[in-house]
């Protein structure tokens, strides 16, 4: 029983982090129809900045700087690169983000050199706590709480602010919303800003011994790859879907690695996703396109 509680808590905590990543991913997709292959690199970059800032500053201000940096990097990618590729199809833009991902990953790995792997979860990493009679790592619980707060905040903003209205309008119909006076580039740029920021927050949980494992920050790029199945499973056009998808991926991974084996866990995530897609081809909450002749 304690093992089960542990698996559930781990799964939910990990899933909440995936939800943050998947949410950013979906926001970017909704605004620009671009699949962002560089999402892991946004997280990695934020983490690298936090790591460098921590050499001079306490933990919390460093995290703030890193999150802002990741958000700005997202903005830069959109403004400097994507917006210049006017004739490119969404597929080509996705490939462009692969190029960005390779450059960032290579450069940060080079900069880290042979130094010890950075860890970013100072206040909670590797600290046990007791919950329902089981001993669990604090990281998972903190991650779950922080992620739920942020996601709640996002949904409120999405529903009640002008920015949210503009986002929804543009996702609904880009041309009509432009005609209504919504500045398309602002919506697009802000989507990348938010996506980058969320990735920057996710990394402070990924780069821990508890979730990312012994490679710390270096593993976060790989772990962040799980945002893909999470976002697709929930439906790429749905923010709610991203959250559900993230939690589902986290739970699947945690339960499969606990009760089957570690190697099977990542396959299990994709099998669950495949199963969902066969039943619902646009994900759990995704919009199904109507065919018109």
């Amino acid at each position: 029983m304690t093992t089960f509680v542990q698996a559930i808590v781990n799964g939910l905590g990990e899933g909440a982090v995936f939800a943050l990543l998947a949410l950013g991913f979906v926001i970017i997709y909704k605004a620009t129809e671009t699949v962002n292959f560089a999402h892991g690199s946004l997280a990695l970059f934020g983490g690298y900045v936090i790591y460098r800032a921590k050499e001079h500053l306490p933990w919390f201000p460093s995290v703030v700087i890193g999150v802002v940096a990741a958000a700005l990097l997202g903005l830069l990618i959109e403004r400097l690169l994507l917006s210049r590729a006017k004739n490119a199809t969404p597929d080509s833009l996705a490939i462009l983000t692969i190029g960005v991902d390779i450059v960032i990953l290579t450069e940060i790995t080079r900069r880290l050199g042979t130094a010890a792997a950075p860890f970013l979860g100072d206040p909670y990493d590797s600290k046990p706590m007791h919950l329902f009679g089981a001993t669990v790592s604090r990281t998972y619980v903190v991650a779950l709480i922080v992620a739920l707060l942020l996601i709640g905040l996002f949904f409120a903003a999405f529903r009640y602010t002008n920015w949210g209205l503009a986002m929804r309008a543009q996702a609904e119909n880009r041309e009509a919303s432009a005609l209504m006076g919504i500045r398309s580039w602002r919506v697009t740029a802000s989507a990348w800003l938010v996506g980058g920021g969320l990735a920057g927050i996710a990394v402070i949980f990924l780069a821990t011994n508890d979730i990312g494992g012994g490679s710390g920050l270096l593993a976060s790029h790989t772990v962040a790859f799980a945002a893909f199945p999470a976002a697709v499973l929930g439906g790429l056009t749905s923010a709610e879907g991203a959250v559900v998808g993230g939690l589902l991926v986290g739970l699947t991974d945690s339960i499969a690695s606990q009760y089957v084996d570690l190697n099977f866990a990542s396959v299990a995530v994709y099998l669950v996703m495949l199963l969902v897609l066969v039943v619902r081809p646009a994900g759990l909450f995704g919009r199904v396109e109507q065919a018109r002749v």
């Binding site: 781990n10 990312g212 494992g213 012994g214 490679s215 772990v223 570690l262 190697n263």
Partner: peptide, 12 residues
């Protein structure tokens, strides 16, 4: 307990 070489979280 076999693990793949890139698995980094050995909790399970």
């Amino acid at each position: 307990a076999p693990v793949s070489s890139t698995a980094s979280d050995l909790t399970s």
